[in-house]
C-alpha cells in the first residue's frame, strides 16, 4: 500500500485552508516519514505556508516520523489523531517537540478534536 496519495491529499487540504496557510507561513520544515514495515521513505515539506509531499530519501530533515505504513495512512487521512499511536509507542519521532506539536495542531485544525 502506498501512503503517497494520502500525503498528497493531506497537503492539498492544508493548502486549501487559509488559516493553516497563514499559520504555517513562517514554519519552514522538512519532515521525513519512514514506513518501518516496508522500509520506504516519504517526505512532507512546509515552505511559505504551502505543504508538498513526495517519496524518497531526504537529507537534513527537521523531523523524522517512523511508523508502520498502516499507521501513517491512518494518521494522515484523519482516521486517528497522531497522539493515539504516539502515546502507544507505535509512532516514533525524532526532532523538536514544537514541530511535532505543530503537526498535531495541523491535523487538529483539519479534522477537529
Amino acid at each position: 500500500m502506498n501512503v503517497l496519495p494520502v500525503l498528497e491529499e493531506f497537503a492539498a487540504q492544508c493548502n486549501q485552508n487559509e488559516r493553516l496557510r497563514k499559520m504555517n507561513r513562517d514554519w519552514s520544515r522538512l519532515i521525513e516519514l519512514v514506513a518501518t514495515d516496508r522500509n520506504v521513505t516519504y517526505w512532507l515539506r512546509s515552505e511559505q505556508g504551502l505543504i508538498t509531499a513526495g517519496m524518497g530519501d531526504v537529507d537534513e530533515a527537521d523531523l523524522k516520523i517512523s511508523a508502520s505504513e498502516d499507521i501513517l495512512q491512518e494518521v494522515f487521512s484523519g482516521a486517528v489523531t497522531p497522539t493515539e499511536p504516539y502515546n502507544a509507542g507505535d509512532l516514533l519521532v525524532k526532532g523538536h517537540q514544537d514541530d511535532l506539536m505543530r503537526l498535531d495542531i495541523i491535523t487538529l485544525l483539519i479534522w477537529g478534536e
Partner: peptide, 10 residues
C-alpha cells in the same frame, strides 16, 4: 530505502 541521516538540530 530508509536510512539514518543527520538532523539539523541535535
Amino acid at each position: 530505502m530508509a536510512s539514518s541521516r543527520d538532523f539539523k538540530r541535535v
